[in-house]
Amino acid sequence: MQNKYNLEGPQGTKPRKRLSGTNIMLYGTLLVVAFYYLLPLYVMVTTSLKGMPEIRAGNIFDLPVDITFEPWVKAWSTACTGLNCDGLSRGFWNSVSILVPSVALSIAIASVNGYALANWKFKGSEVFFTILIFGAFIPYQVMLYPIVILLREVGLMGSLWGLVVVHTIFGMPILTLLFRNYFTSLPDELFKAARVDGAGFWGIYFQVMLPMSLPIFVVAMIIQVTGIWNDFLFGVIYTKPDIYPMTVQLNNIVNSVQGVKEYNVNMAATLLTGLVPLIIYFASGKLFVRGIAAGAVKG
């Protein structure tokens, strides 16, 4: 900058080196970190696009020479789990049919719970809520078997709806917390005004609260879709092989002991299974972060 006013000595912005030592360290470290976190994704993608001979000859970090989509096709439609050989497609559709009712039911129930806890406190409601939150920390293993018995009693054991109920139960603590905190943060006057206008429990919920809560429903959906899609434990315990969700199917394909290991097919299958949550993650961006922050910091 030219010296407009004939000032002497230091003036204006303090000169800083663009490539100062601190900056090199900072961005260098970030580069290494980003590299470490991206590496597995890179390896998955490249491996899934190579043929087996190329995998045996080269190393996992090489870019594919002859790109082939055959592993993807095979992983999707003909890979064997040990029981059947119709690939991941079966697991994918199983997961979808588990996902849709589970997400809908768990969010419907938890949002009403959260609303009741935020606006219609009754004697004991806080106690039940506290139990619910503490329940989130109980290892699932403690409750697995009694739930098997309960599901058997009502005839849902091994069925898709049994798994839906289980997902609804175990999604309840975090979702209820999420909705309760959100509804509590809405101005109380709004609720009071609606009551003065004569609206009741359901009237206020559907006409006042729901229209204002779209973002939090999206956050809840992100939490539930990724959570349920990624579930392995409940899927393997509460369903039968022909309705196993995708994660279980994937594990059975990759870790099946029969036959020659086809690493490219395995990686294609792994990527296929990870695709749904990844798409949700990259598409939702800040909302995903908001979801986990809501679950974590306030919890």
């Binding site: 407009k4 006013y5 000032l7 000595g9 230091p10 003036q11 204006g12 912005t13 303090k14």
Partner: peptide
């Protein structure tokens, strides 16, 4: 805050930087 132009003197000393 870093200034964009000009100087600041405190007690007769140029402290801009």
């Amino acid at each position: 805050l870093d200034v964009t132009g000009g100087q600041i003197h405190i007690k007769g000393e140029n402290v801009t930087w």
